[in-house]
Amino acid sequence: MLGNLRFPEIALILLVVFLLFGAKKLPDMARSLGKSARILKSEAKAMKNDGGGTAESSAAPQDAAPRTIQAAPGDTASARPVGEPDRSTKA
Rank of each mutant, 00 (worst) to 15 (best):
L15N: 11
F18P: 03
P85W: 01
I69A: 02
P66V: 04
S32R: 11
T89K: 04
R67T: 04
K41P: 02
N4C: 15
T89W: 00
A71I: 13
S88H: 13
D63M: 07
E56L: 10
R87M: 12
P85I: 02
R87T: 13
R80D: 00
T76H: 08
T68Q: 09
Q70V: 08
L33Y: 05
T54K: 03
F21N: 06
P66W: 01
E56W: 01
P81K: 02
E56S: 11
G51Y: 09
N4S: 09
K25Q: 05
I39A: 10
S88N: 15
G52P: 05
S78M: 05
A11S: 10
F21C: 03
S58L: 11
L20Q: 15
A37Y: 06
Q70M: 15
A64E: 02
L20D: 06
A65S: 12
A37N: 05
R38V: 11
I13F: 03
L15G: 05
E9W: 10
Q62I: 00
S42V: 08
S57W: 04
D28P: 00
P66E: 01
R87P: 03
G74V: 11
I39S: 01
L2S: 08
T54Y: 03
A11C: 03
T68S: 09
V82G: 09
I13Y: 09
A65Q: 10
L5M: 13
R87V: 13
E9V: 10
S88L: 14
V17C: 14
A79L: 12
S78W: 00
P66T: 02
A46Q: 07
K48A: 13
L19A: 12
E84L: 12
L2A: 09
G51T: 08
